[in-house]
Write a protein that binds this DNA or RNA. Sequence first.
DNA 1: AATGAATGAGGATTCATTCAT
DNA 2: TATGAATGAATCCTCATTCAT
Lengths: 198, 198, 198, 198
Amino acid sequence: MPKISDAKLAARRQQILDAAAACFARDGFHRASMQDVVRECGVSAGLVYRYFASKDEMIAAIVAQWHDQRRARLGPEPSTEDYLALLRSVGEPRARDELRLGVQVWAEAIRSARIRDVVLSGVDGPRALAARALADGPLAARTLANGALGDRGADPDAVARILIAIYQGLVLQTAWDETVDNEAFVRALTAMLGAPAD
Amino acid sequence: MPKISDAKLAARRQQILDAAAACFARDGFHRASMQDVVRECGVSAGLVYRYFASKDEMIAAIVAQWHDQRRARLGPEPSTEDYLALLRSVGEPRARDELRLGVQVWAEAIRSARIRDVVLSGVDGPRALAARALADGPLAARTLANGALGDRGADPDAVARILIAIYQGLVLQTAWDETVDNEAFVRALTAMLGAPAD
Amino acid sequence: MPKISDAKLAARRQQILDAAAACFARDGFHRASMQDVVRECGVSAGLVYRYFASKDEMIAAIVAQWHDQRRARLGPEPSTEDYLALLRSVGEPRARDELRLGVQVWAEAIRSARIRDVVLSGVDGPRALAARALADGPLAARTLANGALGDRGADPDAVARILIAIYQGLVLQTAWDETVDNEAFVRALTAMLGAPAD
Amino acid sequence: MPKISDAKLAARRQQILDAAAACFARDGFHRASMQDVVRECGVSAGLVYRYFASKDEMIAAIVAQWHDQRRARLGPEPSTEDYLALLRSVGEPRARDELRLGVQVWAEAIRSARIRDVVLSGVDGPRALAARALADGPLAARTLANGALGDRGADPDAVARILIAIYQGLVLQTAWDETVDNEAFVRALTAMLGAPAD
DNA sequence: AATGAATGAGGATTCATTCAT
DNA sequence: TATGAATGAATCCTCATTCAT
């Protein structure tokens, strides 16, 4: 019975997804052709379509995975440290393709309501968490509210939005130019936030 | 052969560019077809190709114009007020398509070195200005350095990068969701920057 | 202004339709590829799609035209003579492709509700006319009712259906085998109907 | 290797053929995919190809079976009654798929010489039988010649062709529209043929 | 005997672009 | 100057078929 094991099946799926992510990061979702993806992942066109019903389906899977990874990196109750670590990870050379893919994802969220929903839910979760941490005052000793931000009575949700914006902008700038000085960026931000530098 | 006046020629060009911008903002550069653009601008395909040698050429023109508009809005020596005004303009309903187009431009800068150059030079100019203003201390009374930022000895270039990141993130979030509370965002940012709220 | 004249446009459309009809008659609607049609009509694939939005659309046009031709051949008030002439035309060598196409049309009417509607309306019209002629008695002197059929009090609609069935079966048998003796068929039918042989 | 019994083997084959017939009746031979057939018959693709070397082979088997069933229904020496019974069977609801499949078979006979041979031999046999019965006069008391047809000296082969055409047309019309009044059709035909209504 | 994962050529259709008018 | 008819390569996807298990 040639029914493949679940592990092999998942591995195959991931193999295709990885190849697709590489293509899409490089050329964007709509300039990269399915042939490109097929070539990159080394399996036949037919097989790719056994795993993903259409290119759109594949894009949706890529986008979902991209946000899942980010969420996983932040953890369930992100602290200031987690946030800064996320910013630092943007500077890692091996993150290059991830950043590029992210920018393509953001652009795709403009034209596809479906993708937008995934992206927004990927962004709204962390924002709500951050906002809660900022608002909770005493409990926030080890969170983003630690420092100047929490003290000034600013709208926690708006502050959370700003923090996310900073992350997004850093991703964008680093995706364009890998020589961006990530350390200086994080250091300056630490100073701005009034948090003690690590 | 009735040679057309330069003014008419420029108007024609702009008419095509506007239609293209609308299409590209909606569907992205590579999902919008030249046929879409042709339909939207109401002239023939042949004529479009007399103004733009290729789709790539047209995209480049759109990208250049997008950054020119942004630069024009900031002025030659941007102050904190100019920056905040720029952020506020993101919330204006009529800016909707501009924001969307901007996100597509950013994505295109990932895959095309040519576009990336235009985008980076569009971003680097303002950043250098901001950094200089932040660094100049005393002279910066009416600049972005006005307030806490300039005082803390943070790397001016990094701070400038952060300010740009905040703008970019706001554009992104607003392009996805027009209900983003722009006023709250700007207010919170003003508080963070230590500048007096307007 | 290269806007083509209406006549040229119609001619082009017919050229494509004729080529398509030939392909479809030979191989059926779903074995003949659009490439086959493109090759046969000598224009580019792109142009074919300027005239027909899809293969289905093209099939629909072919089917409609097939029935239009048949209806035209019968005239507005078909007589026994018209009917027999129609049967005789089935035997003409140049009708070969028409017959084959007809059989494909009938098969397509099985799977496509849209085509079925066209086919049924192409068949129902003549049947109603024939039924009326059969029923009208005195007025039917020069119609199908002329002879035994009208006299025996058979259900005119059912008789009309039989006459149509005979035509359909003759088309089928002749499409398969061009050596079918059309004259003998018509002679025998004339005898059966009790009408005077021509 | 567990060698399967001949009976089980035949049953398997028939199970696949039935599923294929259902698919082909619904969508035609060339719109129904082998995947459709595989899905419908509930065995694996590999197994299907152990029973039928190719799709064409399968089609040929289906066509042969279709005509075998028809021939079986008429019996070795068909009488008028057998013929009328055949016509009546066309109106039975459970014959629906059979009719549809028949029309597809007829269309396939247009493009495939191989299928055409099967179809023609399926039609020629009964025609010859009918023609002989019509010609034999006295011996034909219980045959199709019973009644007006045999009396008028019409070409027996042509008359047989007409009778077959009537059957074919009835199948066609009923396959398109199950509300066709089968009883009225048969009654009218009985009247036409001059045979006593049952 | 039986599975269904895997293939890759071929399907319909769209695309950026050109050119005769 | 301006048109839009015309091109054909490239797109996404499906298909009949095979083969390792």
